[in-house]
């Protein structure tokens, strides 16, 4: 795979953090951890935060089904309208918010996102959840925790802790939207636009 991205500034290599098999192992591990920490997934639903969280939640659900036979409920929680940075970043296309069958009241809700960075997405997700119902508990699963938190938020399930510089970009790639699976670290100069899957 091409590990360099086109850029206008200094050419610096994009670092591959996880390849496809490694990402797949990370997802498997998180699925196992969820089963362990939730009494085998009882009374638990997965809510993906678009765009990539949506697909990660589906993958996790399918792995949990493979490991335990349990059909865990999944849904989608679009947080765009709850972001506190809309005035800086501008309007984004909305994605449907879909609650799992049976809703989220009194359920253990696990939010699924690709990258944990400042924590602002997760904060917005809390606000959105509060308007949709009253879960018994909320947990958070991410593929990469890259540090630089701006809120007192931590993930319950982390695929990989990755120390980064603030100006760098971490991108989780999924075949459903990116045609390939993997995690890459993009140097600061090569990121002309914020990427959709990036946590800001």
């Amino acid at each position: 795979m091409d590990t360099r991205v086109p850029e206008t500034g200094v050419q610096r290599p994009v670092r591959k953090i996880l390849d496809a098999p490694a990402l797949s192992r990370v997802i498997d591990r998180i699925a196992h951890q969820i089963l362990e920490k939730t009494d085998g997934g009882t009374n638990t639903v997965l809510l993906g935060i678009p765009t990539r969280g949506t697909f990660l939640a589906r993958r996790l659900a399918s792995r949990i089904k493979a490991f335990s036979g349990l059909a865990i409920g999944t849904g989608v929680l679009d947080i765009t309208l709850y972001r506190d940075d809309l005035r800086m970043r501008g309007a984004r296309a909305l994605e449907p918010t879909e609650m799992p069958d049976g809703g989220i009241d009194n359920k253990r809700v696990i939010l699924i996102d690709d990258v944990l960075f400042s924590g602002r997405s997760v904060r917005a997700a809390f606000d959105a959840l509060a308007d949709l119902g009253r879960p018994r508990a909320v947990q958070l699963a991410v593929i990469v925790d890259r540090g630089h938190r701006e809120f007192p938020i931590r993930a319950d399930y982390v695929g990989k802790n990755l120390p980064t510089a603030r100006a760098e970009t971490v991108k989780v790639q999924l075949a459903e939207v990116d045609d390939v699976d993997g995690v890459i670290l993009v140097p600061a100069e090569s990121t002309p636009t914020p990427l959709d899957g990036e946590s800001v």
Binding site: L86, R87, G90, A91
Partner: peptide, 9 residues
């Protein structure tokens, strides 16, 4: 939520 140039993201 778009900036003054009419650009949203």
């Amino acid at each position: 939520t778009q900036d003054s140039t009419g650009q949203g993201t």
